[in-house]
Computed example of a mutant assay.
Amino acid sequence: MHPALEVADVFRTYGPAWRQTQQTHLSLGQLKVMSAIEQCRTATLGGHVLRCSACAHQDIAYNSCRNRHCPKCQANAAKRWLEARQVDLLPVDYYHVVFTLPAPISAIAYYNKAVIYGLLFEVAAETLRTIAADPKHLGAQIGATLVLHTWDSAMTHHPHVHGIVPGGGLSLDGERWIACKPGFFLPVRVLSRLFRRRFLEELSKAHTAGQLQCLGEYAPLADPAAFAKWLVPLRQCEWVVYAKRPFAGPAAVLAYLARYTHRVAMANSRLVAMDEQGITFRWKDYRAQGRTRHKTMTLSPDEFMRRFLLHVLPSGFHRIRHYGLLANAGRRDYLRRVRAWLQVASVTTETQGAHAEAGNPSTPPTFVCPDCGAAMIIVELLARKPLIRAPPQPEGAA
Rank of each mutant, 00 (worst) to 15 (best):
N63Q: 12
A398D: 11
C52M: 15
D88P: 13
R307M: 08
T208G: 06
P365W: 04
M376K: 11
G143D: 06
P301H: 05
Y94I: 14
T13I: 06
R336P: 06
I279H: 03
Q393A: 10
V97G: 10
T13W: 00
M266K: 08
Q20C: 07
V188I: 12
V344Y: 03
L45Q: 01
Q141G: 00
R51D: 03
M297Q: 11
A36I: 00
E276I: 10
S35D: 09
H69M: 15
M305Y: 14
L309P: 07
R68V: 11
G143I: 06
P314E: 11
M297V: 14
T348K: 14
R332A: 09
W283F: 14
Q213P: 02
P3G: 01
F195W: 11
R41Q: 14
A17F: 08
R384E: 13
V264N: 01
K72G: 03
S27C: 03
G46Y: 03
R336H: 12
Q213K: 15
L28D: 15
Q86I: 12
L120N: 08
Y260S: 02
L271T: 04
P166V: 07
S53F: 02
Q86W: 12
R270P: 06
N268R: 05
I60K: 15
P71F: 06
N360P: 01
I37H: 01
E303G: 14
L271Q: 02
G216E: 06
Y260R: 02
V87H: 13
H162Q: 02
A8K: 03
C372F: 06
L215C: 06
G169L: 14
L231T: 15
L200E: 01
P314H: 10
I142W: 04
Y94M: 11
S269W: 02
Q213I: 05
G324I: 00
E122K: 11
L128N: 11
E357C: 14
L82H: 13
S153K: 09
D9S: 08
L120E: 05
T351M: 06
F247N: 12
V232S: 04
R331L: 04
Y14K: 02
C372R: 06
L128A: 05
S269L: 09
S64Y: 12
H149S: 09
E395G: 05
R389W: 07
T351L: 10
I320G: 07
C40K: 04
